[in-house]
Design a protein around this nucleic acid. Structure first.
Lengths: 354, 354
DNA sequence: CTGAAAGCGCTTACAG
DNA sequence: CTGAAAGCGCTTACAG
C-alpha cells in the first residue's frame, strides 16, 4: 500500500506489517521454505501478492551479511581491449550468472598497485570466488585471497599456490611454426617476435617454436627470437631495426600476441613492400587482423573452455594446489569470419606442469 | 595475535579485544574521526598497530548496511568486443575509482531479459549510480533504477526520463560524408551501410549523411541507404547483393559501426578486386581496421569525455531530466596507431535535443 | 577521554 | 501453523 521509502525501497518489516503477518513468515515465504514451516498456502499466496504489489526486493547486503555469503564473483583482467580478454570476461559472466552470482570484472592496467588494491577491495566485499587473469606475478594476489578464505584461480599466467588454467602455449606455438615452415627453404629466415624476457607464456611459446624448428631441422640463430615486449610500438620498432640492417630479411614471422601484431600492422602500413611476401603467424586472434590481405594464420585461445575449467574447479571442493590445466587453442586459417572459420585442432596438446 | 577466522578474516570485535579497548574506539580510530572524539594519540597508534598486525579489513557489507551506502558503481554494456565499449568501460572504471567506488560492469548481450535482470540485481546491491550504455530501449531500465532511488544516465542511446550522453551522430556523419564526397563526381554513387530501422543513432547518422549530400548537391537515391542491421554477416550479404545486381557499383561507402565494418572486411577478403578503389568511411574506430590497405577514414567516439560527462552529472545534484549531452567525436585519418593519429576536430558539433 | 547500546535489513533456530 | 528474539559486523548518537 505504502509508497517506497526515500531510499532503497521497501523493507521486510514494512512488507510484513502490510501483509498483517510476522517478519519470519514473510522471510520463509519469500525464500521458498514455507512448506517446511507448515505455513498456510493462503498466507503464502497473500504475502507473495503483497510483495509483488509493493515491488519488494530484498536488500542483498543485509541478506549477505546474515548468511555469510555475498553472491558476488570477482575477476581481474589487464584491460578490455582485445578479443582474448573480452572472451574470457563474457564466459566468466555467463558461468557466474548460471550460478546466481553477480559477476564483478575489473581491469587493472597491468599495474601491480592497482591489482593489489582491486583484489583487496573485492576480497573486502567477500566475493565467493576470484579469477585472476593475465597477471605477471599472481602469487601475492593469491595470498591476499587465501588469507581471507577466498578461492582463486589464475588464468593465462600460472602461480604456485593455487590452481591455474593456461593455453597450451608449447603446442600452439609448434602448430603455428609448423604452418610457417611448410614450403620454406632451410636458408630462409624465420623470426619470433614479441613477448617478455623471463615470462612464463613467452618462455613456453619460444620453446615450442624452437622445438618445431629443430624437428624440421630449420636453423634458428640467437638474433631470431625478438622478445621486444608486448606493446605495438616496441614491436614496430623491432621490425624497423630488423629490416633496416639485415642483409637477409625474414621470410616468416611468428608474432607473439595480438598487441605485438598491432605493431606489425603499423609497420606494414608504413612499408607495405617489405612484408608483402612474408608468411605470418600470430599467437592470438582478432577478426580484423584475420582480414588483412596477407598470408596469415592466427591462433584462437579457447577462452570458453578455460573459464569453464575454472568454474569446474570452484564447483568441486578439491585442492589441486600448484596444478596447471592446459587448454588447447585452435588454428584459424582462411575465412576471417569467426563462425565460418576453418578450424583445426592442435594435435597432441600434452598437459605439462611447470 | 590470533590467526584470521575460518571465514572473512578478523572482525572489529576481535580487534577491539586484542587491543584491549572498546569497539567504538577502534571504529573511531579506523575511520579517522578519533581526534574529534578526543581519543588519546597513544591509544590510536596502538589500535592501528594491532590492526595492521592482525591484517584487519573491515567487512564492507556490514559497513554499507549500517551507513546506507554500498560504495558500488554499476554499468551495463551490450558486450566487450569492440573498442567503443572497451573504452567506455575503462573510463568508467577510472572515474569510479577516483571516487572510491568499486566499478561493476556487466555485459547483457543486447538481450532485454538479461538487461532487466542485471539492472535489478545491481539495484538490489544498492549501487550508488548506474550507467546504461548501448541499450535500445533504456526507459524501463531507468524506471527500475529511479523506483529505488538509484541515479542513472544513458550513454549512446538516450531516454526521456533521465539525463543522457551521446556522440554527435549528425556532425560525425556529416564529417565522414564530407571526406567521402571530396573529389567524387556527382554521378558516382555513395552508399550508407548498416544500422537499424527506427533507431536513434542510425536515424541521426543517416540524417547527417543526407544533409551533407544535399549541401554538396550530391544525388542520393532510396536504395542508397542500406539499414541492414549491425551484424557482420548482414552487412556482408547486403554488399553481395549490392555489387551483384548493380550496373552502377558504388564509389564510396559510409559504414555505420565497426561490426558492420567487419562484414565489409569479410566481403573485401572474398572479393578484393570489387572494392579496391572504393572510398571508405566508418562511424567507429579499431586499430586493425585502420590498418587495412584501403582508402579509409574512421571516426573515434570520445569515450573519455562521454563518461566524464556522466560523472559530472552524478557529482552535481541537478536534475536535467530528458536532456541530452552531445559529445563531438574525432576523425581519424592516416597513421593507424592511436597515439600517433592525425586528429581533426569535428566542426560545429551543435547540441540538439530529441 | 572512552564504553554500552541501538540499529542497518535480513535469516533462522527456538518456543509455543 | 506462526511469532519473538538473537545475531551477522559494522557506525554513531548518547551517556558518563
Amino acid at each position: 500500500m505504502t509508497k517506497a521509502n526515500r531510499k532503497g525501497g521497501t523493507t521486510i518489516r514494512e512488507l510484513a506489517s502490510a501483509a498483517g503477518t510476522s517478519i519470519s513468515t514473510v522471510s520463509f515465504v519469500l525464500n521458498g521454505s514455507w512448506r517446511q514451516h507448515r505455513i498456510k498456502e493462503a498466507t503464502a499466496e497473500h504475502v507473495l501478492a503483497v510483495a509483488r504489489q509493493m515491488d519488494y526486493q530484498p536488500n542483498q547486503r543485509a541478506r549477505g551479511l546474515r548468511m555469510q555469503r555475498s553472491s558476488l564473483a570477482g575477476m581481474i583482467v589487464p584491460h578490455h581491449r582485445n578479443r582474448f580478454f573480452a572472451g574470457l570476461i563474457e564466459s566468466f559472466e555467463s558461468e557466474a550468472r548460471q550460478r546466481s552470482l553477480v559477476p564483478i570484472v575489473v581491469s587493472t592496467q597491468r599495474d601491480h598497485e592497482i591489482e593489489t588494491q582491486v583484489v583487496e577491495t573485492l576480497v573486502a566485499q567477500q566475493v565467493e570466488l576470484m579469477v585472476i587473469a593475465g597477471v605477471r606475478d599472481p602469487e601475492p594476489l593469491n595470498r591476499l585471497c587465501l588469507a581471507r578464505g577466498v578461492r582463486c584461480v589464475n588464468v593465462d599466467l600460472p602461480g604456485a599456490n593455487t590452481f591455474s588454467v593456461v593455453t597450451d602455449n608449447v603446442g600452439g606455438a609448434r602448430s603455428l611454426t609448423r604452418w610457417l615452415l611448410d614450403g620454406l627453404a632451410s636458408r630462409e629466415r624465420v623470426i619470433f617476435l614479441g613477448g617478455r624476457e623471463s615470462e612464463y607464456a613467452t618462455d613456453q611459446r619460444v620453446s615450442g617454436f624452437m622445438a618445431e624448428c629443430q624437428a624440421r631441422s630449420h636453423p634458428v640463430e640467437a638474433g631470431d627470437v625478438l622478445r621486444c615486449g608486448y606493446s605495438p610500438l616496441a614491436a614496430k620498432n623491432a621490425l624497423e631495426t630488423l629490416f633496416a640492417k639485415s642483409d637477409r630479411p625474414p621470410s616468416a614471422l611468428l608474432v607473439n600476441s595480438i598487441t605485438a601484431f598491432e605493431g606489425f600492422a603499423m609497420f606494414w602500413h608504413a612499408h607495405p613492400e617489405l612484408v608483402r611476401h612474408v608468411r605470418l603467424a600470430c599467437f592470438d586472434w582478432d577478426p580484423f587482423a584475420a582480414c588483412l590481405p596477407l598470408d596469415t594464420v592466427m591462433l584462437r585461445q579457447d577462452m570458453e573452455t578455460m573459464i569453464a575449467t575454472c568454474f569446474e574447479w570452484f564447483d568441486r571442493a578439491d585442492e589441486r594446489t600448484g596444478e596447471v590445466a592446459v587448454i588447447p587453442p585452435r588454428l584459424m586459417i582462411g575465412d576471417p569470419s569467426e563462425s565460418l572459420l576453418a578450424q583445426e585442432a592442435i594435435p597432441n596438446a600434452d598437459p605439462h606442469q611447470p
